[in-house]
């Protein structure tokens, strides 16, 4: 299916959602093209599974379409709402995946190391980053992805994760330290100069 480029770049997310709620198909297309990559990217890095991330992205967008008639312009940021829905869907998936074992208690850093090395061998820096992210506890991973890859502010992340700004700062700091530890032995493969 060929999708035309988003022709409504000057229209806000809020306005597009209201247009969609009034039956505007072009607004739906613009929102799909604008928001799906963000939702998919976030879910893919949190879940480390492309197929599951696509399912989550689709489900998050379905919830967006269903919520559209009740959306109140200006009360909240649409992307914040959507990231929050996506984060909750990812949490549900991870909970089902690990069943009784909590991810935060698992010795993930050690477990993730072999997959990081495998990614290094393939020479794929992004795969190495994803493998290292997969080694973080879930909440740290969400915070790091939202802060450093999605580029959100701490206030917005706090709203998405339903925690305080200080907790966000703590999660991202610990997450970065853990990532650095995971990748520290791979500097040459990553192309980083010794220093």
């Amino acid at each position: 299916m060929l999708m035309p480029l988003d022709q409504m770049t000057d229209v806000t997310d809020d306005a597009l959602l209201i247009l969609y709620a009034n039956g505007d198909k072009a607004a739906a297309r613009a929102l799909t093209l604008r928001l799906t990559p963000r939702v998919l990217g976030f879910a893919a890095r949190v879940l480390s599974d492309r197929a599951e991330a696509e399912d989550v992205a689709q489900e998050a967008m379905v919830r967006l379409w269903r919520m559209a008639p009740e959306w109140r312009q200006g009360e909240a940021k649409l992307t914040t709402w959507l990231y929050r829905v996506t984060a909750n869907l990812c949490t549900d998936r991870l909970r089902k995946r690990r069943k009784s074992v909590t991810l935060d208690d698992a010795p993930e850093i050690e477990d993730a190391a072999p997959s990081v090395e495998q990614a290094m061998m393939a020479g794929d820096r992004m795969r190495a980053l994803d493998a290292a992210l997969a080694g973080l506890p879930e909440r740290q991973r969400q915070a790091v992805v939202l802060r450093h890859i999605e580029g959100l502010g701490n206030d917005e992340i706090a709203g998405i994760m339903d925690i305080g700004v200080e907790a966000v700062e703590s999660l991202t700091a610990r997450g970065k330290r853990a990532l650095a530890a995971l990748l520290s032995g791979q500097r040459q493969q990553l192309g980083f100069e010794e220093g």
Partner: peptide, 9 residues
């Protein structure tokens, strides 16, 4: 995926 999301919309 885009087609599925548009169909849902």
């Amino acid at each position: 995926l885009l087609a599925r999301i548009m169909a849902d919309a």
